[in-house]
Design a protein around this nucleic acid. Structure first.
Lengths: 190, 190
DNA sequence: ACGCGGGTAGACAGATCGGTATACCTACCC
DNA sequence: GGGTAGGTATACCGATCTGTCTACCCGCGT
């Protein structure tokens, strides 16, 4: 059951794309396999032939989204003018990401809210992604010559996650801009 | 169908307490009405006699939790030594709250992740709570003589929401402490 | 010529879900 | 002493959900 996005069948790609949209915007529990089949113009049997179970499809959905998100971050970081700008660039990535990939918060955190059993694979996925971003912030801060990279990285991560939540849930559209400004102040003080 | 916590029947109080625990720790969709009935030693009929529907029970659960949370905030703010300390006290409230009320993030945001339909009442509840906290931060910052209360309030809210997310989901136990320190720095600079 | 991978079409199983109905019990109040 | 509020116990309904199964089709490589 390889769900690597590269080796997917055309039908499997349509299934994953459709499931991604539906899961993200309506919630995982609210979307049945029959609906995914109908919306992607595919039989239920094909879904189970390609992905094996709904849980596998959920994991594939979250993995694929995460991969795209990290690529957006790296693109903005690489295009930054210098080490300090690279730190702020993560918040530019967030702005682009919410604008293009949907305004309903972090898919991993939303999935975690629904699938709360400790053994469920989404817990590991979510933890891994946040740890990655924390490590990424730490490395960028080190490159920028910050005095306390680890501590400041946590603070940037708090601003980042808070911005995702408040932008949609709290109906504070300025959240991301404000987080960016706060990050700018932080990097200037360090 | 009055679900004001004061006028609740003994059985209704047990139902609400049990539902609160189960909804919060396992997720709303993962908890059936039959389970709530069994765990609280009550018949399903009693649940529907008192609350009318599962949705009403969900709303009652979120309302009651929100009321307790706001009380914790106000208690810490009132006990603070001065206007600047009052701002920081909100983060002390958060520390106590996560320690005593459970470590699975914000119940309102988790509920919102599951119940994504735009008309669902939890959306209004979540939005209202975040707006309340934003207004509370703004007022506290004004009392502390901040130069830009509205802008700084947003930043504090980002730190706050980010801390809730990272404390549990991101497995960063220092998140709340770090948010408190960042708030202290913000109030000292303003 | 043949097999096989990837598909469609559609029925079906088994379980669970929210919600309702009927019958009966008990404490309390007027 | 009768009505009412708040319960218990239990069976049940209709819908929905994940997952399986059989039968058939088509294009492609060997």
């Amino acid at each position: 059951m390889t769900t690597d996005t590269a080796v997917l069948t055309p039908a499997a790609r349509r299934i994953l794309a459709t499931a991604s949209e539906l899961f993200y915007h309506r919630g995982i529990g609210a979307v049945g396999v029959d609906l995914i089949a109908a919306e992607s113009g595919v039989t239920k049997k094909t879904i189970y032939d390609r992905f094996g179970s709904k849980e596998n499809l959920i994991v594939a959905y979250l993995r694929e989204r995460d991969t795209r998100w990290r690529a957006v971050v790296e693109r903005h970081v690489a295009a930054a003018g210098g080490p300090r700008e690279a730190v702020v660039a993560v918040f530019d990535a967030l702005e682009e990401w919410t604008r293009t990939a949907g305004e309903r918060g972090c898919a991993l955190i939303n999935a975690r809210a629904e699938l709360a059993t400790p053994e469920h694979p989404v817990r590991a996925l979510a933890a891994e992604e946040k740890q990655w971003l924390l490590a990424r912030f730490t490395a960028l801060l080190e490159a920028a010559g910050a005095a306390d990279p680890e501590g400041d990285a946590v603070e940037l991560l708090l601003l980042h996650e808070g911005a995702i939540v408040m932008h949609d849930v709290g109906e504070v559209p300025s959240a991301i801009t404000r987080a960016r400004e706060a990050a700018r102040r932080l990097i200037d003080r360090a």
